[in-house]
Every structure is written in structure tokens, then in C-alpha cells.
Nucleic acid binder design. Structure first.
Length: 691
DNA sequence: CTAGGGTTAG
């Protein structure tokens, strides 16, 4: 019921009443005849110049504003002897609409020249305008020079700071201000949420609650709900939910959306859906959030079902919606679906500047279709950094290092400034192609040439680069010289390099560091055990296994999937549940005979040693990627390329086996593992056994 | 005139 009322109040009075404040629209309403003649006249400026001749500059300015001819309108200002507050207000409103900082400054200087005392209202508008145009310095100047300030002046200044990355400045003002209303608290709280500092937001909310005079309103609660969601605090979220119900704030769809989203992000997706279903007035944000929560929860089908419901509902999806769906397509590598989404976007005409376009580049890159990703990027009038970076990473993961580095050069030529993520892509391109020295060159250029700081990720990349190449001394040097603590990614890269080169000693050190940072990650135990196994240190293997068992850590199950005729087929390790398992099994046993003839030797080092030799070999043949590849081959005509995706890194033996399979069955086989793409053809892999 | 929910690259 509450929603119904809200709907009515929203759809009726607002647009109409707003007109009383808008001078341009008022002109429209009051003077339909003059406007008509204006539009009819061939000399477009006829009316404006006549008005000017008659000294009716105010009306002329109104008309020019209506025509989006802001600069000319501002020029006319100089003819007016006694401008009114409302005239300035009209101009400023249009400046704000076009984010026209220069024009705003002209208007501002005019107030000084004409000796006009701006007054509280106009000064506050100037602050808001300058802040929204990104010129905090000008805003601050107005604020400081004001003869008197009201709450709104402070609040506007605070939210101005909170919107750009100056939350510290905002807080300073907040602490300084003589008194605060719920506006001030909310602006500050939402600033913290926006800058991903949910804990501080919630702390401030607590303080606010203790002040009797500042009551939370719907703006406050929707912000703190987002904060609770960000830290996954269901307890806090529920508490706010209770407050919302008690105070009757649950009559607003934004609050409901925030509530639903909070439950979804805190792991209660069913509760999120219940709230979603209860809502009468769902807007595109509500839908987008709910769809996104399903994807995040791994419930791809539910997410897609809801997406198609949205498309039927008549509500137009926006760039956020598309970005969410495309991102899910990227994660699950459902390229066909992504293509359909692209088709839909094209049909409804999406903004090529929006980040839905970069999500498209990301989706194609993640699906291994760098050609299409490149096509989308080239079709963008001015690709943004995210799109460039997505494709660079895409090339890197496909082992197309040359293309990645060339693209990076085009990025520089386009005048776009790379950021730290871009360099993660560039460095990993070098890593995946084994271009060690080139990679080092890029690494040093980050600081020297591009004036960026090295991040922990850059160090992780460069250690990865060196460790894979077996240049452990250099890697250790860099680690000892880095200004921050090595991240888990760095240690994981190092231990990965140690696995390739059998460096037991350094692996132990890396593992110890990893156990400290993330003791619950099974991958560390598994890799370490495998390194010991390769070195034949069986007692150490047993020890690691025992530790793993005792700490109750379970290995993440390997999962591979393949799309055949628009249908996904998912395989687990040793999975026999597929309806066509007999064919798969038959194919695998037949081909392993051929493989052995060709010289394939099963690599059993990576299997835990307490299994009999023969059984080990059989275990290997049941890895999920082998099952998926086998299924792909038996269910497609000869010569069809096979594309398989795996949630973990592919194992050494499977990698080797798939090389043989590609040769014997004469197929191109693509495997996207959690790290990169492997393109198998004629017994070789694009990664050159380097991953 | 000032405040809120959904979002893309590693």
C-alpha cells in the first residue's frame, strides 16, 4: 500500500510544480505566441535581437538558455544594469546542467562587477556549481569569502568534498561546523560509503544515532544499508531494517532496494528476493541489483531468468544492467549469450561511452575472442581506460603478447594515461610470453616514465615474471627492496615459479608466508605437496597432507564446462554423471592407447603418492578438463574447435595430454583456466608450457 | 540551493 501512495505522489505533482521554479519553462508556458513566431521566423535571432533592442535582456537570456545557447546568454548579462537574483539563478541552473565551469565563472565575475550582493542563496548555488564542475578550489573560495553562512553552505561544501576524493577535507569541515542537521550527517556518511570506507560510515551513523536532534531519514538509512552490505554485516543490516520498519521509512523504493541488496550481499539471497517480490514499484536499479546478486551468488540461471523478465516488464535496462549481465557472461564464458546481449544493446541503442561498452570488451576478452573484443574497442569513438585495459589483459591471457604490447602503445598514442591496472596487464602479457627483460623494462618504466607508484600488484607481477624464468636471485632482491609487505599474490606467484623449477627451499619460505596471510587457502598446501612430491620428498608430502587434513581445509573441486549447442555441460573431477558418460569413457580409453603410442607418458607426480601407480594414471584421466574435452570431441563433427573452461589452473598432466589429443584427433582445443588461455593445436600449446 | 539504492579492467 505504501508503495502505491508513493507511486501516485511521484507521478503527479513533481514535474508540474517544478516549473514554477524554472524560468525557462515559465517562459514557455506564459508566452506561447511569441515563441511560436520565434520558431517560425527564418532569421532565428530575430526575436532575441528585437528583445535586446527593446532592452528586454532578461527575456532574451531566458530564450537563449532555452536554446542551449548559454555562452550568448551570459554575454547579454553585461547589458543588464540591475540583474536580479532569479536571473543569476536561471543562468547558474543552465551552467550546472552543462557543467559549464567557464560560463559559471563569467557569471560570477559579473556579480562582482555589477556590485551585486549575491546573498546566501546565490553563494550556496555557486558553491554547489563549482563543486559539481570539479573546481573545489573555487567553491572553497566562495565559501570562505561569504559574509555569513547557513547550514546549507556547510553541507554543500561537505558534499562537494565528499564527491571527489577529498573525504578528509569533508570531515574537517564537518568537525568544524557550528551545528549539524541530518543533512550534514548524511552527506558525510554517504561520502564514506562512496569511498568504500563502510566502517567509518557506520561509526558515524552510531554517533548520529546518539544525538537526539539528528534523526536518520531515508537518505541516511539507504547509505548505511549500503555500508552494511559492503562489510557483509547481516547483523547491522537487520538492525537498520528494524529501525526502518519502526520509523516507517519503508515507504520508499530506494530504501527497499538498498534493503534487498543488503540481504543479497550478506548472503541471504532468498530474503533479498522476498523483499524484491513485495515491491510494487520496481525501477531499473531494483532489478539490476537483484540480478547482480544472483550472479554474484553463482546463480546464473536465476539471474538470467530475472533479466529476461526485466526485458518483458517494459522497464528499459540501462548500462548498469548490461554491465552486470555481460560480466556474468564473462565469468561463465558464455559467449553466445553475451553476443545476444550485445544484439539487444544495439537494438535499443546504448551509449557507446558507457561502461556497458567496456563490459562488452571485457566479456569478449574473457571468452577468448580477442578479435571481437578488438572490434568493439575499435568501434568506440574514444575508448576509456577500462576498455583498453580489458583487451590488453585479454591478449595477455591468450598469450598474444605482441598484440597486448602493441595495444598498449596505441593507448599511449591516443593520449589516454595508463594506470596501475593497465600495467598489471602489460606485465602479465610479458610473463605469459616469457618476455622477461622486456617485462623488467616495463616494470621500471612505471615509475620512471609514467610517474606512477609501483603497487604491490606490480611487484607480484615482476616476481611472477622472474620466478617463472627461474631467476630467483633477482626475484628475492626485488622482494627485499620493495617498500610494502609482499602480497599473497606475490608469494603465490613465487611458489608457482618454484613448482616449475623445483626450488624446494624457496617454495617452503613462500608457503610459510602464505600460511600466515591466508591459512585457509588449500592451494598452498596442494602446491607445496606437489613440489615435495616432484622432489621425491615423500615424508614431507605426508606432513603437508596431515596438516591440511588437521586444519579441516578442503581442496576446491576442479570444475570444467563446455558449451555445446547453446547448452552448458559441467564436469567435476571423476564425474560419471553425464548422460553420455559411456561415450566419453570409451573415447578416453581409446585415445590414451594412441597417445601412449605417440609417446605420451602420464605424469603422476602431481597425484598424491599413497595411490597405486596404475590407479594414479586412471585418476588423471578423470580430471574435469579431460572429461569436458572428450565430451566436446564426441559431440561435435570432426574438425570443430573445442572450447573448454576450468575454474582452477589446469594440471600439468592434463595440459600434456590435451596436446596429444589435439594432434591425434586433429582438433583445435582451447582451454581457459583460472589464469589464462591455452590454445592447443597439432600437439602444441600457445603457452609454450609456460603458465 | 545541500543528502540515498545498482556498476566495467588485475
Amino acid at each position: 500500500m505504501k508503495f502505491l501512495n508513493e507511486k501516485i505522489s511521484k507521478s503527479f505533482p513533481l514535474p508540474f510544480f517544478n516549473r514554477t521554479h524554472s524560468f525557462s519553462s515559465q517562459t514557455n508556458l506564459n508566452k506561447p505566441l511569441t515563441h511560436k513566431s520565434f520558431f517560425k521566423s527564418n532569421t532565428k535571432d530575430g526575436l532575441v535581437s528585437r528583445l535586446c533592442k527593446d532592452g528586454k535582456f532578461t527575456q532574451a537570456i531566458d530564450i537563449l538558455c532555452d536554446q542551449n545557447r548559454l555562452a550568448e546568454a551570459v554575454q547579454l548579462l553585461s547589458h543588464i544594469v540591475r540583474p536580479s537574483t532569479s536571473l543569476y539563478s536561471t543562468l547558474l541552473q543552465h551552467c550546472l546542467q552543462h557543467r559549464a565551469l567557464d560560463q559559471a565563472k563569467l557569471v560570477h565575475s559579473h556579480t562582482r562587477v555589477s556590485g551585486f550582493e549575491p546573498g546566501l542563496f546565490l553563494c550556496n548555488r555557486f558553491i554547489d556549481l563549482y563543486a559539481k564542475c570539479g573546481s573545489l578550489l573555487d567553491a572553497q573560495k566562495v565559501f570562505e569569502e561569504m559574509p555569513e553562512r547557513d547550514l546549507c553552505s556547510w553541507n554543500t561544501m561537505i558534499s562537494g568534498y565528499a564527491k571527489v576524493r577529498k573525504i578528509g577535507e569533508a570531515r574537517k569541515l564537518f568537525d568544524e561546523m557550528p551545528q549539524r542537521d541530518n543533512f550534514s550527517w548524511t552527506a558525510m556518511i554517504s561520502g564514506y560509503v562512496r569511498h568504500q570506507r563502510p566502517n567509518e560510515a557506520l561509526e558515524l551513523y552510531r554517533t548520529m544515532q546518539r544525538r537526539e536532534c539528528s534523526k536518520s531519514n531515508k537518505f541516511t538509512v539507504s547509505s548505511v544499508l549500503a555500508a552494511s552490505a559492503a562489510i557483509h554485516s547481516l547483523r547491522m543490516g537487520k538492525e537498520i531494517h528494524g529501525y526502518i520498519t519502526r520509523t516507517g521509512l519503508d515507504s520508499d523504493e530506494v530504501v527497499w532496494t538498498a534493503l534487498s541488496d543488503m540481504y543479497g550481499k550478506c548472503g541471504s539471497i532468498e530474503e533479498a528476493r522476498r523483499i524484491f517480490d513485495k515491491m510494487v514499484n520496481r525501477d531499473v536499479v531494483t532489478w539490476t541489483a537483484m540480478i547482480g546478486r544472483y550472479f554474484e551468488d553463482g546463480k546464473k540461471d536465476e539471474g538470467l531468468a530475472l533479466f529476461s523478465e526485466l526485458m518483458k516488464s517494459g522497464i528499459r535496462p540501462n548500462e548498469f544492467t548490461f554491465a552486470g549481465v555481460l560480466n556474468a557472461c564473462a565469468d561463465h564464458a558464455t559467449e553466445n549469450l553475451g553476443k545476444q546481449v550485445q544484439g539487444y544493446m544495439t537494438r535499443i541503442g546504448f551509449d557507446p561511452f558507457s561502461f556497458a561498452a567496456s563490459a562488452l570488451v571485457h566479456m569478449y576478452s574473457k571468452c577468448g575472442n580477442t578479435a571481437n573484443a578488438n572490434k568493439v574497442l575499435k568501434g568506440m569513438p574514444g575508448p576509456d581506460l577500462v576498455s583498453w585495459t580489458s583487451l590488453i589483459v585479454g591478449y595477455a591471457q591468450s598469450g598474444q603478447a605482441e598484440e597486448a604490447l602493441q595495444l598498449f602503445e596505441s593507448l599511449l598514442k591516443s593520449g589516454t594515461r595508463p594506470d596501475h591496472v593497465t600495467f598489471v596487464g602489460v606485465l602479465s602479457a610479458c610473463t605469459h610470453a616469457g618476455l622477461v627483460d622486456k617485462g623488467l623494462e616495463y616494470f621500471y618504466s612505471i615509475k620512471a616514465k609514467h610517474g606512477l607508484k609501483h603497487t604491490a600488484d606490480h611487484y607480484a607481477c615482476v616476481v611472477d615474471l622472474l620466478a617463472r624464468a627461474g631467476r630467483f636471485d633477482e626475484a628475492e632482491n626485488i622482494i627485499s627492496e620493495m617498500p610494502m609487505k609482499p602480497s599473497k599474490f606475490l608469494w603465490a606467484s613465487l611458489i608457482g615459479g618454484c613448482r616449475i623449477h623445483g626450488n624446494v627451499k624457496l617454495a617452503k619460505r613462500a608457503a610459510e608466508a602464505l600460511f600466515e596471510i591466508e591459512p585457509e587457502n588449500p592451494a598452498t598446501y596442494v602446491t607445496l605437496a606437489n613440489i615435495y612430491a616432484t622432489a621425491g620428498m615423500w615424508s614431507e608430502v605426508t606432513k603437508v597432507r596431515k596438516e591440511m587434513d588437521e586444519s579441516g581445509i578442503i581442496k576446491k573441486p576442479g570444475l570444467s564446462w563446455i558449451e555445446i549447442k547453446r547448452e552448458m555441460h559441467v564436469f567435476l573431477v571423476g564425474d560419471q554423471s553425464h548422460p553420455r558418460y559411456n561415450e566419453i569413457d570409451h573415447f578416453l580409453s581409446e585415445i590414451s592407447k594412441r597417445m601412449k603410442e605417440e609417446g605420451y607418458v602420464p605424469d603422476t607426480n602431481f597425484v598424491l603418492h599413497d595411490v597405486e601407480e596404475e590407479q594414479k594414471e586412471q585418476n588423471l584421466s578423470y580430471h574435469s578438463e579431460k572429461l569436458a574435452v572428450a565430451f566436446g570431441i564426441v559431440s561435435t563433427p570432426p574438425g570443430t574447435a573445442i572450447k573448454v573452461f576450468k575454474n582452477l589452473r589446469t594440471c600439468v598432466d592434463c595440459h600434456n595430454a590435451i596436446k596429444f589429443i589435439s594432434k591425434i584427433s586433429n582438433r583445435k582445443i582451447v582451454v581457459r583456466d583460472s589464469n589464462r588461455f591455452h590454445w592447443f593445436e597439432d600437439g602444441k600449446c600457445s603457452c609454450l608450457d609456460y603458465w
